[in-house]
Design a protein around this nucleic acid. Structure first.
Lengths: 145, 145
DNA sequence: GCAGCTGGTGGGAAAAAGTGGCAAGACGCG
DNA sequence: CGCGTCTTGCCACTTTTTCCCACCAGCTGC
């Protein structure tokens, strides 16, 4: 389970270290690697542990290769996925296309979202957090379900 | 149950000790750790005992990682949560992003709010207490529900 | 074909951050 | 006023993060 936000640096080669907390959580789940892809709804990079990724892939594979609607979604998002390894220091290399898409410059923010992790450029994160959620889309997480 | 306000110091590393009263209450409920997160409505840090937190997590985990509406809410309200342990002296480390968000400098104020606890910078607390509640938002706490 | 770039990797080591605990001082209670 | 509890400054130690350099492979141009 991933929670919390962490400010990290990303070096000139596009490497940034996964927060130790997340590494532990990953290790505890016995998942040594993660998958990075575009987050479909806004400018973030989605980082998934392998188990979540395979779930997603299963759905994708169940669609017909001729169903344009599905294929368009696959093309746009799933095709951006890269499996990445952590090096001895717990760093991941963010592939250039993703780096560019997420606008990752110098300072990045790792955000635990429960099952998955988001990775933002610092500015993009600030923007996203500052934006108000339209009233009709607010979910009362504290309310009775 | 948490009530009362306590003025404490926060050290250079961002540690501050949870009031002994609260520690007792926590211990009595058999909850050894707390969760810190942004309070959504104003510049305070929310501290939850684990039981309240797990309720929240259950809701979060039930959502799809690709459901934009949910994810936006999770990002804004839950992603800032950090589980923190108390050390032998009952101190917690407030993670940097939260420290920054709450403007915690040197003096902080712990406030018991019933089920949960708030943590403020002293100045922010004073400000919040000094502000008038808009007439249409006043609730008669003693009235019949 | 071979020396010299260039971009990608890996890792050493310094710096920064987090952890733990002692012990002094403040505080409150009887 | 004395005692015990709570809080906090400080110091030592560990872990994490980041900077930077060395190495390797592939390409280029001579």
């Amino acid at each position: 389970m991933f929670f919390g936000t962490f400010n990290h640096a990303i070096d000139a080669k596009g490497r940034t270290s996964l927060p130790a907390r997340f590494r532990e959580a990953l290790a505890a789940a016995g998942e040594p690697r993660i998958v990075l892809m575009q987050y479909p709804h806004w400018r973030a990079i989605l980082a998934l542990p392998q188990s979540v990724w395979t779930e997603l892939v299963k759905k994708v594979m169940s669609a017909s290769p001729l169903d344009a609607r599905w294929q368009r979604n696959v093309l746009k998002f799933v095709s951006t996925a890269h499996e990445v390894d952590l090096d001895v220091h717990g760093r991941v290399l963010v592939p250039p296309p993703l780096r560019e898409w997420g606008g990752l410059e110098k300072e990045v923010v790792w955000v635990g979202m429960g099952n998955v992790i988001h990775l933002y450029d610092k500015a993009a994160y600030a923007e996203q957090m500052a934006a108000d959620i339209p009233a009709d889309q607010v979910v009362d997480l504290f309310g009775k379900s």
